[in-house]
Amino acid sequence: MQEAKLKKRKNEDIFWAVVLLAPLTLAILLFVAVPILYSIYLSFTKYDMFNPPQWRGLDNYRRLFNFSMETQFWRSFKNILIFAPLMTLLGITVGLLLANLLTKVKKGSGVFKVIFYIPVVCSVVATSCIWAWMYNDVYGPMSILFKALGIQDYNFFAPRNVIASMLFMCLWSGFGIQMLLYFAALRNIPDQLYDAAKIDGASALRTFFYVTFPMVSPTTFYLLLTGLIGNLQAYSQFLAIGLDGYTPVLVVYSYAGHGYGNNTYGYSCAMGIFYGLFVGVIAVLNFRLSKHWVGYDII
């Protein structure tokens, strides 16, 4: 009797598991697994959307790694290799410092937190348009500010300045996330640790590096991982502000958005797979290295 009831319950669980899991599983199969397999297949073919794909072996990859022929992708690759690590580190540093400051402030930390988070919820198109005007080389407020500081003719979108401009804009619009997560992590550090450090006579700087920083290392790891993955695939800010083709994702995309009728779909799939693997390797490396500096046991 009891056993039959238990078995019935188990079967019921399996039935409901199938029903409840069906949509998400279907989504993963249809919109993740199938596209990836399809992409791997297409990357070995020549495909123009009208005629069936023709098998071309490694041609697309050979074209991608022909550095004299394919310059657009590698130029964008170089750009992102400068942008992504700098952006990630900047966001983490500013977020941690500000969160630290906010936990020290007695009154109004909630208000500041909300204000700093506003740009995060705003649309990329709107903020990029605003910053395009801020950076305008004649009428933009930033140009006027720079002139007042004694710098004439500073073009924010000149090749040597554009990364700094984009870093500042993305920091402005994104540091709220890092600040928020660090703020939550800092609040979780038990007071006894700080008391102990005080008794031992540690300076503020030493307390920060030997107490605060190790205690928030899981948050740092999370932000480093998601930040690198996200920033390596940054595109919307660049496209919206008018820097089409500046990052690898935009180059990959440009072969689908504008390449209609060209024989470039197989090639763009090859690019996408190569770049996706690159991002994946960075993510895995991050996980591997995390063992040496992230203290999961303390939280």
């Binding site: 998400l24 596209p35 399809y38 992409s39 959307m49 695939q233 994702v249 990959v252 996408g272 996706g276």
Partner: peptide, 23 residues
């Protein structure tokens, strides 16, 4: 397995999804 799919960079599925939706 589901969690692992979250880590797949979106750039891989960008073009094939477009082709699938189109064709």
């Amino acid at each position: 397995v589901m969690f692992a799919t979250m880590c797949i960079p979106g750039v891989i599925t960008l073009i094939p999804s477009y082709i699938m939706f189109a064709r």
